[in-house]
């Protein structure tokens, strides 16, 4: 658990920490609501009394797709898998799904256990998850 001033509850902090392999969000000290990514106000009760939390990076696959028509910058990466993972701590987050064959989507199933991984794209850290065998 990392505590800090409001200046820390930023997208920049999320990606700085992700670069170090850490997945962070925040918890509301007033109502206990846990959020990812960090925000300046509690999404649930509006309180400013928040603290940064680090997630374990494990969870289950809520839903996924295989992108065959990509945005321009991912032209050479497609096809690839993108999905939403429900973290064990509660909130959901979107990420790239790696360690699977995008041409065999039927081998991936919703509800599957996932573990976070950080990949790099254009020098930037990208949140990814891979299936836990």
């Amino acid at each position: 658990m990392v505590s800090g001033s409001a200046a820390q509850f930023l997208t920049k902090t999320f990606y700085d920490k992700l670069k170090e392999g850490k997945l962070i969000g925040c918890r509301c000290k007033k109502c206990n609501f846990v959020m990812i990514p960090p925000r300046l106000l509690c999404k649930e009760c509006g309180s400013k009394d928040l603290e940064l939390v680090e997630f374990k990076g494990t969870g289950t696959l809520e839903t996924f797709t295989v992108i065959h028509v990509p945005p321009m910058r991912l032209k050479n990466v497609a096809p690839y898998v993108t999905g939403i993972v429900k973290l064990d701590e509660g909130p959901m987050i979107m990420g790239r799904i790696v360690g699977v064959d995008p041409n065999k989507p039927e081998e991936l199933r919703m509800g599957q256990r996932m573990q976070m991984e950080v990949i790099e794209e254009d020098g930037k850290p990208v949140l990814a998850f891979k299936p836990v065998s």
Partner: peptide
Amino acid sequence: DYEIPAGATFPGLYAL
């Protein structure tokens, strides 16, 4: 900040 880096496109989001 949080969907596009994952590789999301509009068809992709609706596929989810």
